[in-house]
């Protein structure tokens, strides 16, 4: 039977939490094995980064949402579970594709981890409709209270974790591939993020894209340098 928007949202939330029940707050045994197989074990760096980003996220979440700042910690914890789950799935897929088990360069890349975590957090906030292109930034209190305006809609998360949109874009497709149970709405949400990045955000003046384009074109020659506007 058709669901009301509130019921649909609550079903989505229950599904997300259910899917992550078996995922721990720490890397699984399999994931820890991938870490140990690295030339440099990234475990400590991963945990330290999560600690730092949890503080940043919770603080900014509280500033945006208001007095219910404890929700920020809950969202982050769910995001971390999803981040670990997706990372493990990605590595399994890469292991099969590339026939390698040492992913030291990838797993010691801070940008990769920040991008993956940001995507997981974006999925969590989209599930709770705190990041929504449809509602224009408003979400309804689950207990049926007054609508509360939030400013958590993408690309809010990029500013919180200090991540260029260009780098965030890289994980989206692999994220969707690694988690086939993502709902149609969430896939659509991520696709909208992709389109926003491709059409607009990746071309902002401070984007790393321009430096990469310069390098790609053999960089250096003054007459080959284009302004961001062009």
């Amino acid at each position: 039977p058709p669901q009301t928007p509130i019921r649909a949202a609550m079903t989505s939330i229950q599904q997300l939490r259910g899917d992550l029940t078996s995922s721990g707050d720490q890397p699984s045994t399999n994931l820890a094995t991938y870490f140990k197989n690295c030339t440099v074990d990234p475990m400590q760096a991963v945990l330290l980064r999560l600690e730092t980003l949890e503080q940043a996220f919770s603080q900014r979440f509280g500033q945006a949402v208001g007095p219910r700042c404890t929700l920020g910690c809950q969202r982050f914890k769910l995001g971390v579970r999803l981040y670990y789950k997706i990372m493990e799935a990605m590595l399994k897929s890469e292991e099969k594709r590339l026939s390698v088990q040492n992913f030291s360069k990838l797993l010691n890349d801070s940008t990769f981890h920040t991008s993956l975590l940001a995507c997981a957090l974006e999925v969590v906030m989209a599930t709770y409709e705190e990041s929504s292109f449809k509602t224009g930034g408003y979400n309804h209190d689950a207990a049926g209270g007054d609508p509360v305006k939030t400013d958590l809609c993408f690309p809010w998360i990029l500013d919180v974790v200090d991540l260029p949109a260009f780098d965030f874009y890289k994980v989206i497709e692999s994220f969707i591939k690694a988690e086939p149970t993502l709902s149609k709405d969430i896939v659509k949400h991520l696709e909208t993020c992709e389109n926003l990045i491709m059409e607009r955000i990746a071309w902002r003046t401070d984007s790393p894209l321009f430096e990469l384009l310069k390098q790609e074109h053999g960089g250096g020659a003054a007459d080959q340098v284009e302004t961001p506007a062009s």
Binding site: L98, K105, E173, I176, P180
Partner: peptide, 21 residues
């Protein structure tokens, strides 16, 4: 896939996107 357009080829994955190939 819910009509999502997957653009990566079979020989492309997260390792290539982060220059880890």
């Amino acid at each position: 896939s819910h009509d999502y357009h997957f653009g990566l080829e079979d020989h492309e994955g997260i390792s290539e996107l982060f220059d880890c190939d």
